[in-house]
Computed example of a mutant assay.
Amino acid sequence: MPLNRIVLYVRDLEATVTFYERHFGFRAHRDDGDRIVELVSSAGGASLMLHPAAKGQKSGQSTVKLVFDVEDVEAFAARGAKDGLEFGALHRADGYAFANARDPSGNPISISSRAFRKNELTVG
Rank of each mutant, 00 (worst) to 15 (best):
L3R: 03
L3I: 13
L3V: 15
N4G: 14
N4D: 13
L8Y: 04
V17R: 03
E21M: 10
R22M: 10
F24R: 00
F26I: 00
R30P: 03
D31S: 05
D32W: 02
L39C: 02
L39I: 04
S41K: 00
G44W: 05
A46F: 11
L48I: 08
M49R: 15
M49Q: 14
P52K: 05
A53M: 12
A53Y: 07
A53H: 03
A54Q: 13
Q57D: 15
S62W: 06
T63R: 14
V64F: 05
K65L: 09
F68G: 02
E71G: 09
D72Q: 04
D72R: 06
E74L: 11
A81D: 04
A81F: 08
G84P: 05
G84R: 06
L85F: 06
L85N: 02
G88D: 03
G88E: 02
L90W: 05
R92M: 13
R92F: 13
R92G: 12
A93C: 14
A93R: 10
D94Y: 12
D94G: 12
Y96D: 04
A97H: 08
A97E: 15
R102W: 09
R102C: 11
G106S: 04
G106E: 01
I109H: 01
S110G: 09
S110C: 13
R114D: 06
R117N: 13
L121P: 02
T122D: 15
G124Q: 09
